[in-house]
Design a protein around this nucleic acid. Structure first.
Lengths: 156, 156
DNA sequence: TTATGAAACTTCAAGCTTGAAATAATTCAC
DNA sequence: GTGAATTATTTCAAGCTTGAAGTTTCATAA
């Protein structure tokens, strides 16, 4: 490559690279805004919200490793976040009789109530922040991302 | 088993919420894979790569605040990453005569060479990881994300 | 001039994140 | 049953990230 300083990227593969850059910028922008609002309005964080959201969908509870797999983060990471949620009284770790290596993590009553409030705000924020994406576009994009996902999960 | 535990979310606004969840999962999956490969193959990190990529496009250099704005991260964050890159000899901070508050950050010769190698691998990884997105789909998705971006930047 | 305000950075504490190593409990092969 | 893998989790050091507070330098204007 002998080139001028800023050749507009082109050539095979550049379309996907460009897509990746856009995808990353979009999700970082939205994430930053959500993080900021969660902090300002509810004094919480995105990782805590993510854990609570996962647990809210699973009233019977989740193992640490379930959480880690579902949220796509490391085991050690979940330990720390759950520790903080426990110390805030939003979550419990219940030792199981069957397998004493594991513990079921569940939202407390308080955690569940708190989450419901935050989730409602969160949903309306998303509606606002993605307001310029039409419902139709949203569905088409979602479809593309779904097929990306199934291909991704089936790869080695 | 009365209520199904996981009613599929529906109703107004749910399409955008679903889109956001898919978007976040896709970018996190890809990011995790890139991070892993950068570490394994080049013993570096995504934040360092991002800074170097920005500097590579700007041979004349960038201010710390330019980097922070461009990468969508905080000022203090950039300080730390640049510190590490400097100590690795990949980047320099040059004090300017005009305004002594600022310094121009540039890739060193070594940094530039190193980046070129990593960037080539990075591009081929993206080609591989997004291989199931057709070129056509990639362009359409990019178009949607572009219009999202211009709306985003124009919001108050 | 000089103060006062803004701008560019750095520092800091707290929290998030990872990968690797350590613990503890279970399962499996024999 | 015993010992060797395997699985679930925690701990740890290093690095990333933020928002807030602090420093230095510059710009403005009275």
């Amino acid at each position: 490559m002998v080139a001028g300083p800023l050749p507009a990227p082109s050539g095979p593969g550049k379309d996907r690279l460009r897509l990746w850059v856009r995808l990353l910028r979009a999700s970082r922008s939205i994430e930053a805004e959500l993080r900021e609002r969660l902090r300002r309005e509810f004094n919480t964080t995105l990782p805590r919200f993510d854990v609570m959201a996962a647990l809210y969908r699973a009233p019977e509870g989740m193992l640490m490793s379930d959480l880690s797999r579902f949220l796509l983060v490391s085991n050690g990471n979940v330990t720390g976040i759950v520790d903080r949620l426990v110390s805030e009284g939003l979550v419990t770790r219940a030792r199981r009789n069957g397998d004493r290596r594991t513990s079921m993590v569940r939202l407390t009553e308080e955690g569940s109530k708190a989450f419901a409030v935050i989730a409602a705000a969160h949903e309306s924020w998303i509606g606002e922040l993605l307001g310029n994406v039409s419902e139709d576009e949203a569905r088409r994009l979602t479809g593309m991302l779904d097929s990306f996902r199934s291909n991704w999960e089936g790869r080695e």
